[in-house]
């Protein structure tokens, strides 16, 4: 098991290196150091100031390979090396836009994201599992087919529709919550009310249907038949026998989502003016702030890989039949 985890971590290193390579290539395909300097320092900046700005950040070097240097310097004195390898030690550098350490900004931005993704995560897990149990209990009846129909309806709606209509209904028509904005704790509840509601509704259809299928697969198994033959009540079978075993796929499915709670939700955050990591990513993207962009994408990739590894670990932890070689 330990060996397997170490191997997985080692395999994720080249993937993260690839992510950095793609990010770097796309970034400098779209702009040049001089353009960024102009954009950040303004049109009126003098040439020397711009040259200086570029030199300080090491952007006057070649991109990947420095042919004029000698020995190891051929690789180390390049833009890619100076800007991307520091990421591997979680050193994100200073933001070009704000001139503050990026790690500081990210820490500051992670909490707003968490304050609405964590409630969404737990509430939607609770609601979708209980509704899935409900549908599984009434399987084959009119209630079940209506429920699955509603699930497919929910799956066919784009999140943007939820965002716009909820914003309209709850804040413009019913005036229950502000349209957008952000505040300190007790007031924050009013600001996260609509985003949380959207987060829950948007994912509900798909997850209820998925969990319902899992529950039905479980109730078709031999031990459930035995329990029925013993004369146990259907509710007992569902809650005491089937649910425990159905939790394995449910758990491994949700583990993947946990690392992403930190990333927030890109679209929802930009709409509701939540100063989280998602809106930070979009802002950094449109202002060509390389240190912030690479930090966000790097963290996203690391979290994705961590999610994959955690899923594998949780499989082995819950199910004793699974052994990794």
């Amino acid at each position: 098991m330990k060996e397997y985890i170490i191997r997985r971590i080692l395999f994720s290193l080249p993937v993260i290196l690839g992510v950095m390579l793609i990010t770097f290539a796309l970034f400098f395909f779209l702009t040049t150091p001089r353009n960024i300097a102009r954009q950040i320092l303004g049109d009126k900046a003098k040439n020397e100031v711009i040259e200086n700005w570029i030199k300080i950040r090491g952007l006057d070097q070649p991109y990947f390979l420095n042919l004029s240097a000698k020995g190891l310097k051929k690789i180390t004195s390049t833009i890619f090396y100076t800007h991307m390898t520091s990421l591997l030690f979680f050193d994100f550098g200073r933001s070009w836009q704000d001139d503050r350490p990026v790690s500081e900004i990210i820490l500051e931005r992670a909490f707003p994201s968490l304050s609405f993704t964590v409630p969404v995560f737990f509430l939607s897990l609770l609601i979708s599992i209980s509704l899935a149990m409900f549908l599984a209990f009434f399987r084959g009846t009119y209630i079940d087919s209506m429920g699955t129909f509603l699930c497919v309806l929910g799956m066919s709606v784009v999140i943007i529709i939820y965002i716009i209509t909820f914003q309209w209904i709850f804040s413009m028509v019913m005036r229950l919550a502000p349209v957008s904005g952000w505040a300190g704790w007790p007031d924050r509840l009013r600001f996260i009310f609509i985003p949380v509601l959207i987060g829950i509704t948007a994912g509900l259809g798909g997850s209820i249907r998925y969990y319902r299928t899992i529950m039905l697969e479980e109730t078709g198994k031999e031990y459930v038949r035995t329990a029925r033959a013993k004369g146990l009540h259907e509710i007992d079978i569902l809650f005491r026998h089937a649910l425990k075993n159905a939790m394995i796929p449910v758990l491994t499915n949700t583990v993947m989502a946990i690392p992403f709670l930190f990333m927030g939700a890109l679209l929802t955050e930009t709409f509701f003016g939540i100063p989280g990591l998602g809106s930070f990513a979009i802002d950094a993207f449109f202002s060509n702030d390389l240190p912030s962009i690479k930090a966000v994408i790097f963290i996203g990739a690391v979290l994705y890989q961590a999610g994959l590894i955690l899923t594998d670990i949780s499989y082995a932890a819950v199910d004793p039949r699974i052994v990794f070689e």
Partner: peptide
Amino acid sequence: FYSTLESIPEILLLIA
């Protein structure tokens, strides 16, 4: 190759 593409947040990759 595909794990690399998959690891980049999708909307950001599409925008780029």
